[in-house]
Design a binder for these strands. Structure first.
Lengths: 340, 340
DNA sequence: ATGAAAGCGCTAACAC
DNA sequence: GTGTTAGCGCTTTCAT
């Protein structure tokens, strides 16, 4: 096993081999036009033969750019965030950027560590797709002096840009669909209490109610946690507190599959006895029993656009500071006309 | 809005403010014992007041370590990989490491770009949790000269270490459970054809069959793709080719929910008419209808251990090169005794 | 069109 | 215990 000594080739080696200065090598590396064709060829050859790979950290030292962005998400365990990550990833790699991922798990300490790490690594920008962002956190973010784009969250502070789904429209759309189906007693199982998305969807729900002259009854609200177990317990609470409801709008699809399970256990068939509406349109929404009627968010685009905004900001293009994407109703089989 | 000029504070600023040399500042930064207590205090104060944040790229230039690792996964859309990511993340952040994530999507070109990126960023190590690794890819990986640990894949080459689940044991365990339940005609819906995990689970399946004197019939094998749609089509194929089967072992849980849907559409009740077995024990396995009996993999640990191995390798500790974790049977409701 | 040289922020000998 | 200094690999004026 002849493990060769590890001698990384530098720009100096290339320069020597090609018989030029390091400045020239640097120029061909950056495709500067002012290099003679033959010189360029000679350098290219040396580059190839030596298998040169630029040392980005070294380059960063002088350019002050690292071609790296930081991405914070609530938790990668939620497929919704997974799609956002894919979006960010894809456009990042297309542009030779790397992304450092951190899931905060909504843990403040973790968030602090993350921001510190990003700072020390001198990332060129930060994307925060964490549904709830502590004040402390946001303060730090501003001090960080690099562009920040928030996904599905509020634009806050001078340095912050954002991209999100119009969640109040989404909440209204979901609820209105249920109302059109003849439902009058519609529950809502919440997500994380302090998430903007939760607040907005609830607002949409109330708007739809008001619009159709339906009373808002806070006993039709159940807490959740954006996860299946929260959907399960939320549904159970609804079942005992308001046995008369005929439909329930869930904060997200994860919550909905928990609700579906609670209903199954209670022996209430869906959608015959109660309709359930999700949100997000995750992959498995089409595979649940019954397949979930839900509100689609352009998850992938949320991430891709966020990354593009960062790139624009990078290159000095003043991009729109606050983008919003429209949600879309996806009708499957978990909602049906009210029976009564 | 007094957007202050962006003047990152350096070690020189701190040194000046504290009235010491940069070397001393560096020493306190690294908790070197040979610094006088009062000097240390003075430096600490300067550090705080100036809000100093070390410039990692600069440091890397001299130390040749970036405190960054690269992580390649097949696709973040599969919750199985999401858990692995969480595991590596967690131990990385604990150790002040950053992780650059890339999903390869099993796209060779993407894989090349990824490796190039990792190289240029001078990552300290690479974790590959991509279920299929092209030869080309592996070759590159070796040339990369940094420690590589493979997750759920083969140890290959001098620089490569690995951690994985014993998938042949898992496949055997799954199949044997079905056999014990009285099933004789058991199908297998595959994952990606060239994935080691797929190969191993199939091997386990055949071993169980042999062990119990059951014949192996290749018409009981259906192709899949490790995703729900593959499970759906695979199950449909099985349904038409071998209507007599009473149980099916699926490459993973994602495949299983696809199979469940196919069965539902075909009007075959699960587990009464056909039992279905999954693999992975994803979060939603407990929420499907019926809840999935499956083989648990320690997904999070796979990632956490991989990262720890990298850390060990970093510090010169020769760690075990080939770790294997045992799978575990999780009994829920998608499998029942054979009726005939 | 090309080269010389300065310097980015930091660490690590080495000297005192 | 502390300071001086020489780079790490690269880009970028500034000359030529």
């Amino acid at each position: 096993m002849s493990r060769e000594a590890k001698v990384p080739v530098t720009i100096v080696d290339v320069a020597r081999k090609a018989g030029v200065s390091t400045a020239t090598v640097s120029r061909v590396l950056h495709k500067s036009p002012k290099v003679d064709a033959t010189t360029r060829a000679r350098v290219q050859e040396a580059l190839e033969e030596l298998g040169y790979s630029p040392n980005i950290p070294a380059r960063s030292l002088v350019t002050k750019r690292t071609r790296t962005v930081g991405l914070v998400i609530t938790t990668i365990a939620d497929p919704f965030f997974a799609d956002i990550v894919r979006g960010v990833e894809d456009v990042a790699i297309e542009n030779d950027y790397g992304v450092i991922l951190c899931d905060s798990n909504a843990d403040p300490e973790r968030e602090m560590a993350t921001i510190r790490l990003f700072q020390e690594k001198r990332v060129d920008g930060i994307i925060v797709a964490s549904s709830r962002v502590g004040d402390l956190y946001l303060g730090l973010l501003e001090k960080t002096k690099v562009p920040v784009v928030l996904v599905n969250n509020e634009k806050t502070g001078a340095y912050v840009y954002s991209i999100g789904t119009d969640d109040v429209a989404g909440g209204e759309m979901a609820t209105e669909y249920l109302i059109r189906l003849g439902h009058r007693r519609i529950g809502y199982i919440a997500g994380l209490a302090d998430a903007k998305s939760n607040h907005d969807r609830l607002t949409g729900y109330r708007q739809a109610l008001r619009k159709h002259g339906l009373p808002f009854d806070s006993s039709f609200l159940a807490p959740g946690n954006a996860r299946p177990d929260g959907g399960l317990s939320g549904m159970n609470q609804l079942l005992t507190n308001c046995p008369s409801l005929t439909a329930v709008f869930c904060y997200n699809d994860l919550t909905a599959i928990g609700a579906l399970k609670a209903l199954r256990i209670a022996g209430k068939s869906v959608p015959d006895l109660v309709s359930v509406m999700g949100y997000d349109d995750l992959l498995f929404a089409a595979y649940s029993e019954p397949p979930l009627t839900t509100i689609e968010q352009r998850k992938y685009d949320l991430g891709a656009i966020a990354m593009r905004m960062l790139l624009d900001l990078q290159s000095g293009v003043e991009s729109v500071s606050n983008n919003v994407l429209e949600p879309r109703l996806v009708i499957r089989e978990s909602c049906s006309p009210a029976k009564s």
